[in-house]
């Protein structure tokens, strides 16, 4: 029995359902072609298919559970696939206190990720040590790895975590393809002693 087949020829309008298609980047359209810069296409593709690596150590991890859960549903923003292998992921989400004992482990995970990689510090502890200004807590993960987006809160609400992901998406979309090979980036990495 043949199945009914619908070809995806007509641009359907889902806007009344709250579903939006990704907007076309700037470019030149004409009869049967569309021309834009590669950078924009790559940025668009990367932005909407982030693979987050949750590095959850404490309380913020529980809020991340809620964010991933059915109520808040981070998958709506193209982050359906939460990977647990650093080699496959491109967004490291550090959630929770990082103790000094944990610092080297975090750095190791960061080093195992392939470029391009982004880091999001979720919560006060990951951003600055939070209320734990103590001998055993790393005062912010930016002491060991570079961070792209800080999400404030102790713990941040799921909405705040989603906002952080959207900020990361903005960065990803607008990132120059040359950034990761540039001098400035190299200097940043050298600052952390990462080759």
């Amino acid at each position: 029995m043949s199945r009914p087949v619908r070809f995806n020829m007509i641009q359907k309008d889902f806007s009344d359902l709250g579903i939006n298609n990704v907007q076309l980047p700037e470019g030149h359209t004409g009869e049967g072609f569309f021309a834009t810069s590669l950078e924009k296409v790559v940025g668009m593709a990367r932005k909407n298919s982030m693979w987050p690596l949750p590095f959850a150590t404490s309380c913020c991890g529980i809020e991340f559970m809620a964010t991933m859960g059915s109520h808040y549903d981070l998958s709506r923003f193209g982050s359906e696939r939460v990977g647990f292998s650093p080699r496959q992921c491109d967004l490291l989400m550090v959630m929770g206190t990082i103790a000094k004992k944990m610092g080297p482990v975090l750095r190791q995970v960061y080093l195992q990720m392939a470029e391009p990689r982004w880091v999001m510090a979720v919560g006060a502890c990951a951003s600055s040590g939070g209320i734990f200004d103590t001998y055993s807590v790393l005062q912010g993960i930016d002491q060991v790895i570079p961070v792209d987006v800080y999400v404030p809160g102790c713990p941040p609400r799921p909405e705040a975590i989603i906002d952080g992901v959207l900020r990361i998406q903005e960065l990803v979309q607008n990132e120059s393809l040359r950034r990761r090979t540039g001098e400035q980036y190299k200097a940043l990495m050298d600052g952390y002693g990462i080759q």
Binding site: G129, D133, Y135, S136
Partner: peptide, 23 residues
């Protein structure tokens, strides 16, 4: 058990400071 093995003092004795000294 809780702290790193390299630590050379016993942190909860009263004479040692609470705060992180590297800040």
């Amino acid at each position: 058990i809780l702290n790193v093995d390299e630590m050379d003092y016993f942190p909860l004795r009263k004479e040692f400071p609470l705060e992180d000294q590297t800040r």
